[in-house]
Design a protein around this nucleic acid. Sequence first.
DNA 1: CGGCAGATCATCT
DNA 2: GATGATCTGCCGC
Length: 206
Amino acid sequence: MPFPQKLPAAFYTRPDVVTIARDLIGKSFYTCFDGVLTGGMVVETEAYSGLNDAACHAHLGRRTKRTQIMYEPGGVAYVYLIYGIYSLFNIVTNVAGTADAVLIRAIEPTEGIEEMQLRRGLSKVEPRLTAGPGLVTQALGISTRHNGIDLSGNEIWFEDRGVQVPEDQIVAGLRVGVAYAGADALLPWRFSLKGSRWVSKAKPKY
DNA sequence: CGGCAGATCATCT
DNA sequence: GATGATCTGCCGC
């Protein structure tokens, strides 16, 4: 099979959001706005499930203006503003009517590094470039105006570039910033690439 | 390096 | 009216 290959809709519509979050480690994440290509390899994700996950915005089928996009078929973006400052990017997964999503928390930069430095206001290439969910979106030029965008298009998409990540190189841990979710905060639904300096430094409150 | 205050606003109660 | 799937800068060690 020739690489690179844009991830097909079938990758996102699978039913297990936790599996999808794990599978995304090692895939490539790109944006191309006004002919400017930026991106890198996904090294950290978190899974959120509409069913049985109090940390999910769409917990128990909650439908609000903000969460409605999560009920679309897998393969579109869910982007929302947090703390009035940062846009967080998620991939909606599973079939229509379900509300699962994968938060992209960190990437290892590979394409358009200078442009990403410009967007982040950094003169050096360091983890602060893309190691965190609010930083990835800044570096890639993503904001809430991209909420709902289709990942089969040519502005925001994911690719399989043939990178093989062995199971034992993927670390499962607690999600960050979801202490409000009670027992569900203990779900090991955060995945990261072992040893990568591009994984965010944030630590779960447990 | 660790802890903490502050930024800033769309969304939801 | 309160809060958040965050990040930065400042302060003290």
